[in-house]
Design a protein around this nucleic acid. Structure first.
Lengths: 202, 202
DNA sequence: ATTTGACTATTTCCGTTTTTCGGTCAAAGC
DNA sequence: GCTTTGACCGAAAAACGGAAATAGTCAAAT
């Protein structure tokens, strides 16, 4: 029953948004009385958060797969950024949470969003650490680099998702991910410095 | 008289915002009748745009100075980004124009904003071209790289300016500018390749 | 050419009324 | 005992109409 409710809610929240969707219509859609929604969920906000959590959980799963691949960390980083934006673009309810930055009536999504940010921070930190250990990445302070990446990808969400510019900016996003990766690429001159020193000694 | 009006308007718009500022109080501040405002400006929107234009004009002047410096293009690029954000942070009326992304009642600021973006595009393009010609920058497509930079710096304006996170993110911004510059840095391995070849021949 | 201030038109504000909707829970159903 | 219903309540939102405020106007004055 709970799943049925969440599915119905997902459908309506995605289409009409949190505020325009009524509990009555969510219930009617599954031929139930509205009271049953409150048997399983404390209130409308909790139902929305459950929908959101499930959607973000799917995205987390997909993003985690990137960590499993055999690609080097720069490729993984690029993929992470691109796939992240692509999946979130498809998650309409997530777009609505961006409005929490402006409207107090979205206060209740904060925890779910913070949880997702935490997940992201862990993923990125792991990725950068791996790249650093492998010698591919040149990162001095992993935490602050993660801050930058998060700030950048979050910053572009509003134009991309709320202003529907994702398609327009698809190439630019691709290049952005390239630039971010490139900015962290270990300079190969260090290798050649070693080689040069050896040649000089011979 | 026109300057007097603009100065008075700047003071009130900055403090109370466009919508909360009345033409009456702008006029009273300079001991004039409200009707004189309409002699010089078509309407309230035009007056606001004039204020905005003048403020952005000062910023354009400061940013243009960066082009005059003797620094290499990477340093200039970093400075451009940092100074840009810093100056815009101080321009309260500009912050208000960011709301145009959400509220239709700010439709009238579009042209002034587009003009500023054009200016920026020219500056960045010039800078990148110079860096490419000097051999400092590794840029394949200048236009699309400029797109990325603009998208990124614009993206972070809302958290920084509208959510007052500039101070909190000051270090992150610094690192962002470093990363952007770094992503475009010409790989020095090419230089060492040449040197290595010469040593090998000797 | 510039400024004023009375005036108009439009917008905003405010208090009241009506409607909607989130939430409740005793009773019914399984 | 668990689950569901549907009548009900109170709070919030929406609608309404009138008052107040404000943007804009323009003939007259300077």
């Amino acid at each position: 029953m709970k799943d049925l409710i969440v599915e119905s809610a997902k459908k309506y929240f995605s289409r009409f948004g949190f505020h325009k969707t009524t509990m009555e219509e969510i219930a009617k859609n599954i031929h139930k009385s509205k009271g049953v929604l409150y048997y399983y969920f404390k209130n409308k906000e909790e139902l929305f958060n459950e929908v959101l959590k499930q959607e973000l959980s799917c995205i987390k799963t997909e993003l985690s797969k990137i960590m499993m691949s055999k690609n080097d960390s720069l490729v993984m980083l690029k993929e992470y950024i691109l796939i992240r934006l692509k999946l979130l673009y498809k998650t309409v309810n997530y777009h609505e949470t961006l409005k929490a930055d402006f409207f107090e009536k979205y206060y209740f999504v904060k925890d779910v969003r913070d949880d997702f940010t935490k997940f992201e921070r862990i993923q990125l930190t792991t990725m950068l650490k791996k790249g650093k250990d492998e010698g591919y990445l040149n990162v001095i302070d992993i935490d602050s680099t993660v801050d930058v990446i998060l700030m950048v990808v979050s910053g572009i969400e509003i134009p991309l998702f709320l202003q529907n510019k994702y398609d327009e900016y698809e190439d630019t996003i691709e290049e952005l991910s390239e630039m971010i990766a490139n900015s962290l690429r270990m300079q190969k001159n260090k290798l050649f410095q070693v080689l040069l020193t050896q040649k000089h000694k011979q």
